[in-house]
């Protein structure tokens, strides 16, 4: 195998511990690894050419690049992803994927159009739509801020009064929200990490007294045997959204013939180190390495 190099572009506010583990696994898989906080990247557009510069180094000279930033970094992030999309460098995420996955309603819409199992979802910002929403959805229902992450910006709403109050607040901040049907799940969901065609399924259980299954909010995670149909749906979803690496979250529900529905797609999934060790970063890096081997041939 020839020598291969990887640049990891991290979010402006990145988790140091998670990135430490990611870099350690990257250094096992690649001959050269460069960790680049997005705040320190400079984009140069000149003479018909684009460059991504960090300390004078052009990241486009690397064999692979793994961008791991979120919606807060959209100003630079979208332009960086556009440049990567147009280059020969391998990257497991696309600008299309970034844009879709940072919009909780739009991503579900695209997946539903592809006949993947999803929950009834609406998009709104106006308090005036309260009556319409509450007539389409039974209470309780779930409200999500469009750019929310790690369970933040996700609210469980019990009645019209609560809904109107939240929408009034959201409207004040000129935010859009996605409304979704609530499915009782006992704070359990399934995260399918997708690496190309390979899937790792993780069962997440929420903290006591939390209806959400997010690990960052005190829940726990364990690897479980793959559900073939769920894995196929996860791989299909990742392709539709434009990712080679991502996490697709599912909830079990009898409302879908498959027995599950997609509730979220995550562009830069956390590795759940406490419960899964280095499994996820290891799989990520091995996958990217294998792709980088083919990319420049």
């Amino acid at each position: 195998m020839s020598e291969k190099s990887l640049a990891i572009i991290a979010a402006s506010h990145y988790n140091k511990q998670n990135n430490k583990v990611l870099i350690a696994e990257a250094e096992k898989a690649f001959d050269k690894v460069l960790f680049v906080p997005i705040n320190r990247v400079m984009i140069a557009e000149e003479k018909g050419e684009s460059k991504l510069l960090f300390k004078g180094i052009n990241l486009l000279d690397f064999d692979a690049c793994y961008p791991r930033f979120g919606s807060k970094d959209y100003f630079m992030g979208e332009a960086i992803l556009r440049i990567l999309d147009n280059s020969k460098i391998y990257t497991p995420v696309s600008i299309k994927g970034f844009q879709l996955s940072n919009h909780k309603y739009y991503s579900i819409k695209k997946l539903a159009e592809a006949d993947l199992p999803t929950l009834l979802t609406a998009l709104s910002s106006s308090p005036g739509v309260v009556k319409k929403i509450s007539s389409e959805f039974d209470f309780p229902l779930v409200l999500k801020l469009i750019n929310g992450f790690a369970g933040k910006g996700v609210m469980l709403i019990s009645d019209d009064g609560q809904l109107k109050s939240i929408l009034d607040t959201v409207h004040l901040f000129e935010e859009y929200i996605s409304t979704q049907k609530y499915i009782e799940s006992k704070a359990v969901d399934f995260r399918c990490y997708v690496f190309g065609e390979k899937v790792l399924t993780v069962k997440r259980t929420g903290a006591k007294d939390d209806w959400r299954a997010n690990i960052s909010r005190g829940g726990k995670a364990e690897i479980v045997p793959d559900n073939k149909k769920m894995s196929e749906a996860a791989v299909k979803a990742s392709k539709i959204l434009g990712f080679d690496i991502c996490a697709i979250d599912f909830i079990q529900t009898k409302s879908q013939p498959e027995g599950f529905a997609i509730i979220d797609a995550n562009f830069q999934p956390g590795p759940f180190r406490k419960f899964l060790g280095t499994t996820v970063p290891k799989d990520m890096m091995e996958f990217i390495r294998a792709k980088a081997e083919k990319a420049r041939k």
Binding site: M42, E45, G48, E49, F75, M76, R82, I83
Partner: peptide, 23 residues
């Protein structure tokens, strides 16, 4: 998103002024 517009135009060979974007 102005940086995205600039990058997109450049990617499709539209002549743009020399531009630098950073945080």
């Amino acid at each position: 998103n102005e940086p995205l517009q600039t990058t997109t135009l450049n990617a499709y060979a539209v002549k743009i002024p020399r531009t630098f974007v950073f945080r």
